[in-house]
Nucleic acid binder design. Structure first.
Length: 467
DNA sequence: ATGTCC
Protein backbone atom coordinates (compact mmCIF):
# COMPACT_ATOMS: atom_id res chain seq x y z
CA UNK A 1 0.00 0.00 0.00
CA UNK A 2 1.27 3.45 -0.91
CA UNK A 3 2.41 5.59 1.97
CA UNK A 4 0.32 8.64 2.77
CA UNK A 5 1.75 11.88 1.43
CA UNK A 6 0.10 15.19 2.26
CA UNK A 7 1.03 18.73 1.27
CA UNK A 8 0.51 22.05 2.97
CA UNK A 9 -1.39 23.17 -0.10
CA UNK A 10 -4.00 20.43 0.34
CA UNK A 11 -4.45 21.34 4.00
CA UNK A 12 -4.93 25.00 3.26
CA UNK A 13 -7.46 24.08 0.59
CA UNK A 14 -9.68 22.42 3.21
CA UNK A 15 -9.40 25.51 5.38
CA UNK A 16 -6.34 24.93 7.57
CA UNK A 17 -4.86 28.22 8.75
CA UNK A 18 -1.26 29.33 8.17
CA UNK A 19 1.07 28.32 10.97
CA UNK A 20 2.57 25.33 12.72
CA UNK A 21 -0.67 23.33 12.55
CA UNK A 22 0.09 22.54 8.90
CA UNK A 23 3.37 20.83 9.63
CA UNK A 24 2.09 19.17 12.80
CA UNK A 25 -0.89 17.77 10.90
CA UNK A 26 1.29 16.46 8.07
CA UNK A 27 3.70 14.84 10.50
CA UNK A 28 1.03 13.20 12.64
CA UNK A 29 -0.96 11.91 9.67
CA UNK A 30 2.07 10.61 7.78
CA UNK A 31 3.38 8.85 10.86
CA UNK A 32 0.23 7.44 12.42
CA UNK A 33 -2.27 7.29 9.55
CA UNK A 34 0.11 6.28 6.81
CA UNK A 35 -2.17 3.55 5.45
CA UNK A 36 -5.10 5.92 4.96
CA UNK A 37 -5.87 7.24 1.53
CA UNK A 38 -5.20 10.90 0.99
CA UNK A 39 -8.96 11.55 0.74
CA UNK A 40 -9.67 9.77 4.06
CA UNK A 41 -6.87 11.62 5.78
CA UNK A 42 -8.14 14.96 4.53
CA UNK A 43 -11.69 14.09 5.61
CA UNK A 44 -10.42 13.31 9.10
CA UNK A 45 -8.40 16.53 9.18
CA UNK A 46 -11.49 18.42 8.09
CA UNK A 47 -13.44 16.92 11.03
CA UNK A 48 -10.70 17.99 13.44
CA UNK A 49 -10.86 21.49 12.01
CA UNK A 50 -14.65 21.64 12.52
CA UNK A 51 -14.48 20.62 16.17
CA UNK A 52 -10.95 20.44 17.53
CA UNK A 53 -12.11 20.02 21.13
CA UNK A 54 -13.70 16.66 20.27
CA UNK A 55 -10.23 15.26 19.52
CA UNK A 56 -8.45 16.58 22.58
CA UNK A 57 -8.26 13.17 24.25
CA UNK A 58 -6.87 11.34 21.21
CA UNK A 59 -3.19 10.57 21.80
CA UNK A 60 -2.05 11.64 18.33
CA UNK A 61 -4.85 13.80 16.90
CA UNK A 62 -4.84 16.01 19.99
CA UNK A 63 -1.50 17.36 18.78
CA UNK A 64 -3.29 18.75 15.74
CA UNK A 65 -6.37 19.82 17.71
CA UNK A 66 -4.43 21.87 20.23
CA UNK A 67 -2.78 23.85 17.47
CA UNK A 68 -6.26 24.73 16.19
CA UNK A 69 -7.55 25.86 19.56
CA UNK A 70 -5.95 29.26 19.58
CA UNK A 71 -6.21 30.98 22.93
CA UNK A 72 -7.39 34.55 22.71
CA UNK A 73 -4.19 36.34 23.54
CA UNK A 74 -4.00 39.96 24.48
CA UNK A 75 -1.82 42.19 22.36
CA UNK A 76 1.42 43.09 24.10
CA UNK A 77 1.79 46.82 24.63
CA UNK A 78 4.84 48.75 23.42
CA UNK A 79 6.63 51.36 25.49
CA UNK A 80 5.25 54.82 24.68
CA UNK A 81 8.65 56.01 23.41
CA UNK A 82 11.83 54.29 22.21
CA UNK A 83 14.63 53.82 24.72
CA UNK A 84 17.76 55.72 23.83
CA UNK A 85 20.28 53.99 21.56
CA UNK A 86 23.52 54.97 19.85
CA UNK A 87 23.61 55.50 16.08
CA UNK A 88 26.98 55.37 14.33
CA UNK A 89 27.26 57.19 10.99
CA UNK A 90 23.71 58.52 11.13
CA UNK A 91 24.41 60.65 8.05
CA UNK A 92 24.44 57.43 5.94
CA UNK A 93 21.40 55.78 7.44
CA UNK A 94 18.01 55.87 5.74
CA UNK A 95 14.91 56.88 7.72
CA UNK A 96 13.32 53.45 7.33
CA UNK A 97 16.13 51.82 9.32
CA UNK A 98 15.84 54.41 12.11
CA UNK A 99 12.06 53.90 12.22
CA UNK A 100 12.49 50.14 12.55
CA UNK A 101 15.11 50.53 15.27
CA UNK A 102 12.84 52.96 17.14
CA UNK A 103 10.13 50.30 17.19
CA UNK A 104 12.60 47.66 18.41
CA UNK A 105 13.57 49.99 21.27
CA UNK A 106 9.92 50.06 22.40
CA UNK A 107 9.58 46.32 23.05
CA UNK A 108 9.00 45.51 26.71
CA UNK A 109 11.81 42.91 26.57
CA UNK A 110 14.38 45.34 25.16
CA UNK A 111 17.31 46.31 27.39
CA UNK A 112 19.57 48.17 24.94
CA UNK A 113 20.31 48.62 21.24
CA UNK A 114 22.54 50.30 18.67
CA UNK A 115 22.60 51.00 14.94
CA UNK A 116 25.73 50.43 12.86
CA UNK A 117 26.81 52.78 10.02
CA UNK A 118 25.89 50.27 7.28
CA UNK A 119 22.30 50.04 8.53
CA UNK A 120 19.41 49.77 6.10
CA UNK A 121 15.82 48.66 6.24
CA UNK A 122 15.07 44.96 6.63
CA UNK A 123 12.33 42.77 8.04
CA UNK A 124 11.71 43.45 11.72
CA UNK A 125 15.09 44.57 12.97
CA UNK A 126 17.02 46.65 10.40
CA UNK A 127 20.15 45.16 8.83
CA UNK A 128 22.98 46.66 10.87
CA UNK A 129 20.81 46.62 14.00
CA UNK A 130 21.98 45.36 17.38
CA UNK A 131 19.32 44.55 19.97
CA UNK A 132 19.83 43.24 23.50
CA UNK A 133 16.78 41.76 25.22
CA UNK A 134 15.99 40.05 28.52
CA UNK A 135 15.16 36.34 28.61
CA UNK A 136 13.91 36.07 25.03
CA UNK A 137 15.10 35.56 21.49
CA UNK A 138 13.66 37.20 18.36
CA UNK A 139 14.02 34.99 15.28
CA UNK A 140 13.80 37.99 12.93
CA UNK A 141 16.35 39.78 15.13
CA UNK A 142 18.81 37.17 13.86
CA UNK A 143 17.51 37.18 10.31
CA UNK A 144 16.76 34.64 7.63
CA UNK A 145 20.34 33.60 6.96
CA UNK A 146 21.21 32.39 10.45
CA UNK A 147 24.97 32.26 11.02
CA UNK A 148 25.81 34.20 7.86
CA UNK A 149 29.51 34.81 8.35
CA UNK A 150 32.92 35.78 7.05
CA UNK A 151 35.97 33.52 6.92
CA UNK A 152 39.45 34.69 5.95
CA UNK A 153 42.43 32.38 5.50
CA UNK A 154 45.90 33.87 5.24
CA UNK A 155 48.19 31.48 3.34
CA UNK A 156 51.91 30.78 3.16
CA UNK A 157 51.96 31.18 -0.63
CA UNK A 158 53.98 34.22 -1.86
CA UNK A 159 51.47 36.92 -2.79
CA UNK A 160 53.00 37.40 -6.27
CA UNK A 161 51.82 33.88 -7.19
CA UNK A 162 48.24 35.12 -7.40
CA UNK A 163 48.96 37.17 -10.51
CA UNK A 164 51.54 34.76 -11.95
CA UNK A 165 49.28 31.74 -11.69
CA UNK A 166 45.96 33.59 -12.01
CA UNK A 167 44.57 30.96 -14.41
CA UNK A 168 45.17 28.19 -11.87
CA UNK A 169 43.60 30.12 -8.99
CA UNK A 170 40.63 30.99 -11.17
CA UNK A 171 40.10 27.40 -12.27
CA UNK A 172 40.31 26.05 -8.72
CA UNK A 173 37.85 28.70 -7.55
CA UNK A 174 35.38 27.60 -10.21
CA UNK A 175 35.92 23.87 -9.58
CA UNK A 176 35.96 24.21 -5.81
CA UNK A 177 32.78 26.21 -5.16
CA UNK A 178 29.06 25.79 -5.81
CA UNK A 179 26.82 28.86 -6.09
CA UNK A 180 23.12 29.40 -6.69
CA UNK A 181 19.92 29.18 -4.64
CA UNK A 182 19.35 25.45 -5.03
CA UNK A 183 23.07 24.68 -5.25
CA UNK A 184 24.36 21.32 -4.03
CA UNK A 185 27.44 19.19 -4.60
CA UNK A 186 26.91 16.18 -6.84
CA UNK A 187 28.77 13.87 -4.49
CA UNK A 188 27.84 13.59 -0.85
CA UNK A 189 30.31 15.22 1.53
CA UNK A 190 30.91 14.33 5.14
CA UNK A 191 31.23 16.59 8.12
CA UNK A 192 31.02 16.27 11.86
CA UNK A 193 28.28 18.91 12.00
CA UNK A 194 25.92 16.54 10.19
CA UNK A 195 26.18 14.14 13.18
CA UNK A 196 25.00 16.82 15.63
CA UNK A 197 22.41 15.27 18.00
CA UNK A 198 20.10 18.27 17.43
CA UNK A 199 19.32 16.78 14.01
CA UNK A 200 17.58 13.87 15.73
CA UNK A 201 16.23 15.71 18.77
CA UNK A 202 14.12 18.35 17.04
CA UNK A 203 11.36 17.37 14.62
CA UNK A 204 11.96 20.21 12.20
CA UNK A 205 15.69 19.46 12.04
CA UNK A 206 15.10 15.76 11.34
CA UNK A 207 13.34 16.81 8.17
CA UNK A 208 16.07 19.25 7.21
CA UNK A 209 18.98 16.84 7.59
CA UNK A 210 18.91 15.63 3.99
CA UNK A 211 18.91 19.21 2.71
CA UNK A 212 21.80 20.06 5.01
CA UNK A 213 23.76 17.09 3.67
CA UNK A 214 23.11 18.09 0.06
CA UNK A 215 23.99 21.77 0.55
CA UNK A 216 27.04 21.36 2.75
CA UNK A 217 29.96 23.44 1.55
CA UNK A 218 27.92 25.50 -0.93
CA UNK A 219 27.76 29.29 -1.04
CA UNK A 220 24.21 30.27 -2.05
CA UNK A 221 23.45 33.54 -3.80
CA UNK A 222 22.84 37.26 -3.28
CA UNK A 223 25.86 39.01 -1.80
CA UNK A 224 27.69 35.78 -1.00
CA UNK A 225 31.12 35.24 -2.48
CA UNK A 226 34.38 33.32 -2.38
CA UNK A 227 37.46 35.24 -3.49
CA UNK A 228 41.24 35.10 -3.75
CA UNK A 229 42.95 38.31 -2.86
CA UNK A 230 45.90 40.12 -1.34
CA UNK A 231 46.08 40.67 2.40
CA UNK A 232 48.05 43.53 3.92
CA UNK A 233 48.62 42.66 7.56
CA UNK A 234 49.60 45.49 9.88
CA UNK A 235 48.91 44.20 13.39
CA UNK A 236 47.61 40.64 13.51
CA UNK A 237 48.72 38.30 16.32
CA UNK A 238 51.05 35.59 15.06
CA UNK A 239 51.47 37.08 11.57
CA UNK A 240 54.40 39.34 10.68
CA UNK A 241 53.30 42.60 9.07
CA UNK A 242 53.43 42.33 5.29
CA UNK A 243 51.58 41.25 2.16
CA UNK A 244 50.05 37.78 1.88
CA UNK A 245 47.83 35.73 -0.38
CA UNK A 246 44.39 35.16 1.16
CA UNK A 247 41.06 33.47 0.66
CA UNK A 248 37.91 35.23 1.84
CA UNK A 249 34.38 33.80 1.86
CA UNK A 250 30.96 35.16 2.79
CA UNK A 251 27.99 32.82 3.15
CA UNK A 252 25.58 31.35 5.64
CA UNK A 253 23.50 28.35 6.58
CA UNK A 254 21.69 27.90 3.24
CA UNK A 255 18.28 26.24 3.21
CA UNK A 256 18.77 24.82 6.70
CA UNK A 257 18.96 28.22 8.38
CA UNK A 258 16.30 29.74 6.13
CA UNK A 259 13.79 27.03 7.07
CA UNK A 260 14.62 27.30 10.77
CA UNK A 261 14.16 31.07 10.60
CA UNK A 262 10.85 30.79 8.77
CA UNK A 263 9.41 28.14 11.06
CA UNK A 264 10.30 29.79 14.36
CA UNK A 265 9.33 33.27 13.16
CA UNK A 266 5.83 31.98 12.41
CA UNK A 267 5.72 30.23 15.75
CA UNK A 268 6.86 33.36 17.57
CA UNK A 269 4.21 35.44 15.82
CA UNK A 270 1.51 33.05 17.03
CA UNK A 271 2.70 32.95 20.60
CA UNK A 272 3.70 36.59 20.92
CA UNK A 273 0.92 38.86 19.77
CA UNK A 274 2.29 42.30 18.95
CA UNK A 275 0.94 45.41 17.23
CA UNK A 276 1.01 45.12 13.47
CA UNK A 277 3.97 47.45 12.91
CA UNK A 278 6.25 45.27 15.01
CA UNK A 279 4.85 41.78 14.45
CA UNK A 280 8.11 40.71 12.79
CA UNK A 281 9.84 41.33 16.11
CA UNK A 282 7.84 38.59 17.84
CA UNK A 283 9.98 36.80 20.40
CA UNK A 284 10.18 33.39 22.02
CA UNK A 285 10.67 33.17 25.76
CA UNK A 286 14.04 31.48 26.28
CA UNK A 287 12.65 29.39 29.11
CA UNK A 288 9.85 28.02 26.91
CA UNK A 289 10.20 24.81 24.93
CA UNK A 290 9.90 26.75 21.67
CA UNK A 291 12.55 29.25 22.74
CA UNK A 292 14.98 26.53 23.71
CA UNK A 293 14.34 24.69 20.46
CA UNK A 294 15.05 27.82 18.45
CA UNK A 295 18.21 28.43 20.45
CA UNK A 296 19.43 24.90 19.72
CA UNK A 297 18.46 25.11 16.04
CA UNK A 298 20.02 28.57 15.65
CA UNK A 299 23.29 27.33 17.12
CA UNK A 300 23.22 24.31 14.83
CA UNK A 301 22.72 26.61 11.81
CA UNK A 302 25.69 28.66 13.03
CA UNK A 303 27.88 25.57 13.32
CA UNK A 304 26.69 24.44 9.90
CA UNK A 305 27.54 27.80 8.30
CA UNK A 306 30.98 27.63 9.89
CA UNK A 307 31.51 24.06 8.65
CA UNK A 308 30.54 25.15 5.12
CA UNK A 309 33.25 27.84 5.12
CA UNK A 310 35.84 25.48 6.55
CA UNK A 311 35.11 22.89 3.87
CA UNK A 312 35.39 25.47 1.11
CA UNK A 313 38.67 26.77 2.49
CA UNK A 314 40.15 23.34 3.06
CA UNK A 315 39.32 22.26 -0.50
CA UNK A 316 40.65 25.41 -2.16
CA UNK A 317 43.79 25.70 -0.04
CA UNK A 318 44.64 22.09 -0.82
CA UNK A 319 43.95 22.64 -4.52
CA UNK A 320 46.49 25.45 -4.78
CA UNK A 321 49.03 23.69 -2.57
CA UNK A 322 49.04 26.16 0.32
CA UNK A 323 48.93 25.93 4.08
CA UNK A 324 47.26 28.10 6.64
CA UNK A 325 49.13 30.87 8.47
CA UNK A 326 46.18 32.47 10.22
CA UNK A 327 42.41 32.56 10.09
CA UNK A 328 39.91 35.23 11.07
CA UNK A 329 36.19 34.48 11.08
CA UNK A 330 32.95 35.72 12.57
CA UNK A 331 29.18 35.38 12.39
CA UNK A 332 27.29 38.57 11.62
CA UNK A 333 23.69 37.26 11.74
CA UNK A 334 23.29 35.64 15.13
CA UNK A 335 22.27 35.99 18.78
CA UNK A 336 24.60 35.53 21.74
CA UNK A 337 24.24 35.35 25.52
CA UNK A 338 26.44 38.16 26.83
CA UNK A 339 26.90 40.14 30.01
CA UNK A 340 26.35 43.87 29.61
CA UNK A 341 26.28 46.16 32.63
CA UNK A 342 26.39 43.12 34.87
CA UNK A 343 23.24 41.61 33.38
CA UNK A 344 22.96 38.58 31.10
CA UNK A 345 21.25 39.65 27.89
CA UNK A 346 20.47 38.06 24.55
CA UNK A 347 22.30 40.20 22.02
CA UNK A 348 20.99 39.99 18.46
CA UNK A 349 23.33 41.15 15.74
CA UNK A 350 21.53 41.22 12.41
CA UNK A 351 24.20 42.29 9.98
CA UNK A 352 26.64 43.44 12.67
CA UNK A 353 30.14 42.21 13.54
CA UNK A 354 30.98 41.23 17.12
CA UNK A 355 33.54 43.76 18.32
CA UNK A 356 34.20 43.06 21.98
CA UNK A 357 37.57 44.19 23.27
CA UNK A 358 40.32 42.36 21.35
CA UNK A 359 37.85 40.32 19.25
CA UNK A 360 38.95 39.90 15.63
CA UNK A 361 36.53 40.13 12.71
CA UNK A 362 36.28 40.77 8.98
CA UNK A 363 34.23 43.58 7.43
CA UNK A 364 34.03 43.19 3.64
CA UNK A 365 33.91 46.15 1.24
CA UNK A 366 32.82 45.22 -2.27
CA UNK A 367 34.31 43.37 -5.25
CA UNK A 368 36.53 46.38 -5.98
CA UNK A 369 36.85 47.93 -2.50
CA UNK A 370 39.01 46.44 0.25
CA UNK A 371 37.69 44.43 3.15
CA UNK A 372 38.97 45.21 6.66
CA UNK A 373 40.41 42.91 9.30
CA UNK A 374 39.38 44.54 12.55
CA UNK A 375 39.98 44.22 16.26
CA UNK A 376 37.09 45.22 18.49
CA UNK A 377 37.43 48.03 21.00
CA UNK A 378 34.61 46.82 23.23
CA UNK A 379 32.68 50.08 23.00
CA UNK A 380 29.68 49.76 25.36
CA UNK A 381 27.52 52.15 23.31
CA UNK A 382 27.66 49.77 20.35
CA UNK A 383 27.09 46.71 22.59
CA UNK A 384 30.49 45.45 21.42
CA UNK A 385 29.52 45.60 17.74
CA UNK A 386 30.52 47.11 14.40
CA UNK A 387 29.11 47.13 10.85
CA UNK A 388 29.13 43.95 8.76
CA UNK A 389 30.08 45.65 5.53
CA UNK A 390 29.63 48.86 3.60
CA UNK A 391 25.86 48.44 3.48
CA UNK A 392 23.68 48.91 0.42
CA UNK A 393 22.83 52.40 -0.66
CA UNK A 394 20.65 51.17 -3.51
CA UNK A 395 18.13 48.36 -3.92
CA UNK A 396 18.97 45.45 -6.19
CA UNK A 397 16.42 46.57 -8.77
CA UNK A 398 17.67 50.15 -8.75
CA UNK A 399 21.28 48.96 -9.09
CA UNK A 400 20.34 46.81 -12.08
CA UNK A 401 18.83 49.89 -13.76
CA UNK A 402 21.61 52.27 -12.74
CA UNK A 403 24.69 50.37 -13.90
CA UNK A 404 25.81 48.78 -17.15
CA UNK A 405 27.80 45.64 -17.84
CA UNK A 406 30.44 47.65 -19.70
CA UNK A 407 30.75 50.11 -16.81
CA UNK A 408 31.21 47.24 -14.37
CA UNK A 409 33.79 45.59 -16.64
CA UNK A 410 35.75 48.84 -16.80
CA UNK A 411 35.69 49.24 -13.01
CA UNK A 412 36.84 45.64 -12.50
CA UNK A 413 39.65 46.11 -14.98
CA UNK A 414 40.80 49.35 -13.28
CA UNK A 415 41.06 47.46 -10.00
CA UNK A 416 42.60 44.37 -11.64
CA UNK A 417 39.75 42.21 -10.38
CA UNK A 418 38.48 39.14 -12.22
CA UNK A 419 34.80 38.39 -11.63
CA UNK A 420 33.17 34.99 -12.15
CA UNK A 421 29.38 35.23 -12.02
CA UNK A 422 28.01 38.26 -10.20
CA UNK A 423 25.56 40.79 -11.56
CA UNK A 424 24.79 44.48 -11.72
CA UNK A 425 22.76 44.16 -8.50
CA UNK A 426 26.07 43.57 -6.73
CA UNK A 427 28.01 46.30 -8.56
CA UNK A 428 30.27 48.25 -6.19
CA UNK A 429 28.23 51.43 -6.75
CA UNK A 430 25.24 49.75 -5.11
CA UNK A 431 27.14 49.95 -1.82
CA UNK A 432 28.13 52.82 0.42
CA UNK A 433 31.76 53.94 0.47
CA UNK A 434 33.44 51.46 2.83
CA UNK A 435 36.10 54.01 3.83
CA UNK A 436 33.43 56.45 4.99
CA UNK A 437 31.66 53.63 6.86
CA UNK A 438 34.93 52.63 8.54
CA UNK A 439 35.58 56.25 9.57
CA UNK A 440 32.14 56.38 11.17
CA UNK A 441 33.06 53.44 13.39
CA UNK A 442 36.64 54.22 14.34
CA UNK A 443 35.53 54.23 17.99
CA UNK A 444 34.27 50.65 17.61
CA UNK A 445 37.15 48.83 15.91
CA UNK A 446 40.85 49.16 15.11
CA UNK A 447 41.94 48.16 11.61
CA UNK A 448 44.67 45.51 11.73
CA UNK A 449 44.76 44.54 8.07
CA UNK A 450 43.11 44.92 4.69
CA UNK A 451 41.99 42.44 2.05
CA UNK A 452 42.02 43.36 -1.66
CA UNK A 453 39.81 41.05 -3.78
CA UNK A 454 41.46 39.87 -7.02
CA UNK A 455 39.56 36.82 -8.27
CA UNK A 456 35.94 36.92 -7.15
CA UNK A 457 33.24 34.34 -7.56
CA UNK A 458 29.57 35.07 -6.92
CA UNK A 459 26.25 33.57 -8.01
CA UNK A 460 25.06 34.67 -11.44
CA UNK A 461 23.24 37.98 -11.15
CA UNK A 462 19.48 38.24 -11.03
CA UNK A 463 17.92 38.31 -14.44
CA UNK A 464 15.02 36.80 -16.34
CA UNK A 465 14.20 33.33 -15.07
CA UNK A 466 15.39 30.64 -17.41
CA UNK A 467 13.18 27.82 -16.17
C1' DA B 1 18.69 35.05 1.99
C1' DT B 2 15.89 30.92 0.42
C1' DG B 3 13.76 28.36 -3.83
C1' DT B 4 7.57 28.44 -2.28
C1' DC B 5 5.97 24.30 4.49
C1' DC B 6 8.34 18.60 7.55
Amino acid sequence: MAKLKLTGKELRKIGYPEGPVISVAITVMEQHYKHHSSADALALLSNILQDPAAFSSDEQLSKIAEKLIVPVSEEIALLPAPMHYAVYGSEFIEDGAIRQMDYAMRLPVTAAGALMPDAHQGYGLPIGGVLAVRGAVIPYGVGVDIGCRMCLSILDIPSAELEKKAAVFKRELIDGTVFGAGGAWKTMLEDEVLEDPAFSEIGLLRHLHAKAVAQLSTSGSGNHFVEWGLVDVTDLPGVSPGRYLGLLSHSGSRGLGAQIAGYYTKLAQEICSLPREVQHLAWLDLSSEEGQEYWTAMNLAGDYASACHHQIHKRLIKAVGGSLLARVENHHNFAWKEIHNGEELIVHRKGATPAGSGVLGVIPGSMTAPGFIVRGRGEPGSLDSASHGAGRQMSRSKATQSFTASGLAKLLSEHKVKLIGGGLDEAPGAYKDINAVMNAQDSLVDVVGKFYPKIVRMADGSGPRED
